[in-house]
Nucleic acid binder design. Structure first.
Lengths: 169, 169
DNA sequence: CTTGGAAAGTCAACATAGCTGACATAAAAT
DNA sequence: ATTTTATGTCAGCTATGTTGACTTTCCAAG
């Protein structure tokens, strides 16, 4: 019973589509996203890394052994931009780059122990905020939150997102 | 670890607080936010502006006459950073900076006709995506979406957010 | 009325992280 | 044998954030 058939109800049921409601949603995204990145950003300052390193570490953790190309697609940046980040992570011993067994052109990325430790520190902070928000809003709100975000994604990315590990339900 | 004290209910009602659920939420935020900014970013390329200009224009539109300090608080950047952006907007005739009547130190910011036109173009695009997502997810999901985002914000900002114009309910 | 502080603006220098373009190497695919 | 793919790299540019120092204007409190 997501969208349903509009027009049936006088318009009250479409109040969530008014200009003002949409603008509030836009602002909510902006403010919430800023808070969402603030905690890991603070931690990253202590090391010599930035948000770009965090993102790389996040996805390598989520999908150990993923190739550089796959990571590129998920991050949506150029290989030159990713390479700068990836190089320092490999040099610093946080990420291991293994030559593919079937296709030796590919590099498969894995977190080392050290990388996994930083990943944990970062995601602990980020999950703490997410958990507090989830707890405050309740399960039904969380389901709606996820539905709207998913609907907002570009279709190609949505497929990637949906195919990623999810032990729920 | 993930959930707090799951002793009360078997754990089923806290499924939304598992580590995996939280990680999916984190990814959803990342992917959705990228999509959310993509449309205006494309438009801004045609002019010589960036995302920072968009944000300034957005808030000036939302709260005409707001002071530089207020805008600074909402954007969460330094005055030097904002000034660079604001200067070009004023020079290009998109924003008007009026000396305060009561306190002549203050500058009150307004969009000009030209500024309002660009604002409309940008927000039309952004609202179109938001509207599509809202429509796909339905009113209940939208309410949950807003609840979770609001709970995620830093308290100071949440107050600003809540006090902003909202013609709903 | 003087003085201290607030609001705004500016200059300079720097960091992060994106981009394009050009090019190199190795390996797979045709 | 040739072309394409996956990766890596160099160089240079842009946008947007940061600190720190300093100025001007003006309000407000002593």
């Amino acid at each position: 019973m997501a969208a349903g058939s509009p027009g049936t109800q006088g318009g009250e049921s479409l109040l969530f589509l008014t200009d003002e409601q949409l603008r509030k949603g836009i602002e909510a995204m902006f403010f919430a996203y800023r808070a969402f990145t603030a905690d890991p950003d603070r931690i990253l300052e202590n090391y010599e890394y930035g948000r770009a390193h965090h993102r790389a570490i996040h996805f390598i953790n989520r999908q150990p052994g993923l190739t550089v190309n796959t990571l590129l697609t998920m991050l949506g940046v150029t290989k030159q931009s990713l390479n700068r980040v990836l190089r320092t992570l490999v040099e610093d011993g946080l990420v291991e780059s293994r030559v593919g067994r079937r296709d030796k052109r590919e590099r498969h990325l894995h977190l080392t122990e050290k990388g996994a430790t930083l990943e944990r520190e970062l995601s602990d902070a980020q999950r703490a905020r997410m958990r507090a928000a989830y707890r405050a809003a309740g399960p039904a709100a969380v389901a709606g939150f996820r539905q709207v975000l998913e609907a907002m994604m570009d279709p190609d990315i949505r497929r990637h997102y949906q195919s990623m590990k999810d032990h729920s339900v």
